[in-house]
């Protein structure tokens, strides 16, 4: 315990305690950096779509409107049509909001001077996963009735009756427990791992380039972790997008399963 709080030290390279990397002091009571990022994400999304919606819609889209329309079409074509089909198009605003919010919460991880993905804290992923859990269960109950829905979930049709002893507990756990848990953990752990990787390589480069002894050797070597840092930053842009995409796609898959049970 003590060692963790004081930080790790290997031959002069000090890794700070993890909570100083992740927990931020309150700027004003109850508001810290992560809170600010999540508010900013909602605000940026709102402003973007406000500008987009108020542009002249008759001419070819440009700027904010173009961006917003690309996002809408991406959600419709690449997420909903691929997973739920035409009947799922009513979910576009929900999935679009979710995608944009998660993406804008992810991206600060690589923006200089902010460098903290809001989703690297458990709060937002946990809430989103819980919301998805509530929404897909409610959709299932609304579409198939409470009895029909739980019958379809717990006793999937087409399974021999004797196997229900095995299948029912597995289905119960996988649908009602593992889905929201893995949804939250996937987003959170991906962003946390990316953030820690960036921190480690940034600290390593700093330690090597500002070395006090054997500077002739250590400073050129410091270029290597810096190059890796640059590569990882580019990689994190991809990861930020991919995690938002996967979260939204899985939500769409779960919603599709709740709307139309497998036959």
């Amino acid at each position: 315990m003590q060692a963790a709080e004081e930080g790790e030290s290997t031959r002069g390279f000090h890794f700070p305690p993890i909570n100083t990397l992740l927990r931020w002091k309150d700027i004003t009571p109850g508001i810290n950096k992560v809170v600010l990022i999540s508010i900013a994400a909602a605000l940026i999304g709102t402003v973007l779509f406000l500008i987009a919606a108020n542009r002249d819609h008759k001419t070819a889209p440009k700027g904010a409107r173009n961006l917003a329309e690309i996002a809408v079409e991406f959600i419709e074509k690449n997420i909903i049509m691929e997973t739920m089909g035409r009947s799922g198009l009513g979910w576009t605003p929900f999935l679009l909001t979710m995608f944009i919010f998660i993406y804008i919460c992810n991206v600060p991880g690589i923006i200089p001077f902010i460098q903290m993905p809001a989703t690297a804290r458990m709060g937002i992923p946990a809430f989103m996963a819980l919301l998805v859990w509530v929404v897909y269960n409610a959709t299932g109950i609304k579409n198939q009735g409470p009895i029909g829905y739980f019958k379809n979930v717990l006793f999937p049709p087409g399974v021999p009756k004797a196997l229900y002893i095995l299948v029912t507990p597995i289905e119960f756990i996988s649908t009602l427990v593992v889905r929201p848990f893995s949804l939250a953990v996937r987003l959170f752990a991906n962003m946390l791992a990316g953030h820690l990787l960036l921190v480690i390589f940034a600290l390593l480069s700093e330690a090597l380039i500002q070395a006090e002894t054997q500077r002739i050797f250590l400073i050129p070597i410091g270029v290597l972790p810096f190059g890796v840092l640059m590569f990882l930053t580019a990689f994190e842009i991809l990861v930020a997008f991919l995690q938002a995409y996967i979260f939204t796609t899985l939500t769409a898959v779960y919603l599709g399963m709740a709307t139309h049970p497998e036959h």
Binding site: N32, S38, A42, T46, F94, C105
Partner: peptide
């Protein structure tokens, strides 16, 4: 999860969702 982050994140997302919807 930290209480204030969860609450503020949830609040801003829900507000965003309602405005969008």
């Amino acid at each position: 999860p930290e209480g204030k982050e969860l609450i503020w994140g949830a609040g801003s997302f829900l507000v965003f969702l309602v405005i969008m919807r």
